[in-house]
Computed example of a mutant assay.
Amino acid sequence: MGLPELRPIQDCITRWNSTLHMLKRVLDSREAIISTLALLNAPIELLYPHEWDIVKEACTLLEPFEQVTVEISGEQYVTASKMIILCRGLQIATTHHQTSGAISTENITEMVQVLSASMEKRFHRMEFNNVLAEASVLDPRFKKLAFNDSTALDEAVQRLKTAAANCTRNEPSAPPGNQGEAVSLEVEKHTSAVLK
């Protein structure tokens, strides 16, 4: 048929994205699958055109989740600082899909609602996670951009300032007396400048 030779992919229950890969491969091989089943007279019920549309919409909806999963699973680069901004991006993409009017079936509407509810439950108050918030503030690409809640940003910045001041106070070579306090104030000013 002049199509690329693509083997079907079987999903695996322990990896959610294997289902996405399976559906995408079925879509890519649609004509070949339909023709083969017809030639073999196989006792398998074919998908109706509206069901193919559901598969296509499901793949479109799940694609950003796959991209974020791959990005966060990287081993050669830091990923903690990206967590807040990527999770918020997923929420925005799902909401956009819901409000754009692109949804044509009840199945996809239900899928979007389940995804939105699950993300709200899992990502609720993620900006207040100390490690993720501090990592985002310290990442020069994001700093304040990762935060929707100014309280979470202020708390993360205050924790970083306190940690930096404590590091200089606890160093054995810190100057005695008022000079140590001057160094702490200098570190706090420098930290504030870096965070702006």
Rank of each mutant, 00 (worst) to 15 (best):
R125G: 06
R159F: 12
M126W: 11
V137Y: 01
E134L: 09
A163V: 03
L153A: 10
D139G: 06
Q179K: 09
G180L: 04
G177N: 15
T151F: 00
A135P: 04
H124N: 13
K161P: 02
T162M: 02
P140Y: 07
L153I: 10
A174L: 07
F147V: 00
P172C: 03
A135M: 11
K161M: 11
N148E: 14
E127R: 14
N166M: 13
L145I: 08
R169N: 02
L153G: 03
P176E: 09
E120W: 12
L153N: 10
G180W: 01
P140F: 10
E155L: 15
A164C: 13
A117P: 11
L145V: 08
G177P: 06
N148W: 12
T162P: 04
Q179E: 10
S150I: 12
F147C: 02
D154V: 08
E134A: 07
K143R: 11
A146K: 07
S136G: 07
R125K: 11
R141M: 07
L138G: 02
R169A: 04
E127A: 13
T168W: 11
T151Y: 00
D154P: 02
E134R: 12
N170Y: 14
T168Q: 11
L160N: 08
V137L: 02
E120M: 13
L160M: 11
F147A: 00
N129S: 15
A135E: 09
V131E: 04
N166I: 10
P176N: 05
M119Q: 08
R159A: 04
D149T: 04
L115D: 03
S136R: 06
D149N: 15
A165W: 03
N148R: 12
K143H: 04
N129D: 15
A174G: 01
P172F: 02
A152M: 08
L132S: 03
N178H: 11
G177I: 15
T162N: 04
Q158N: 10
C167G: 01
R169P: 01
T162V: 09
N130Q: 07
G180K: 06
M126L: 15
A164K: 07
N178V: 13
S118H: 11
V131Y: 08
A146C: 10
S118N: 13
K144T: 08
E134H: 08
E171M: 11
F142W: 10
K121V: 05
T168L: 11
F142R: 01
K161R: 14
A174R: 06
L115Y: 09
F147K: 01
K143W: 03
N166W: 05
V131A: 02
H124I: 12
A164W: 01
N148P: 00
K143I: 09
K144G: 00
S116Q: 14
N130T: 05
R169C: 03
A133M: 05
N166C: 12
E181G: 07
V137N: 03
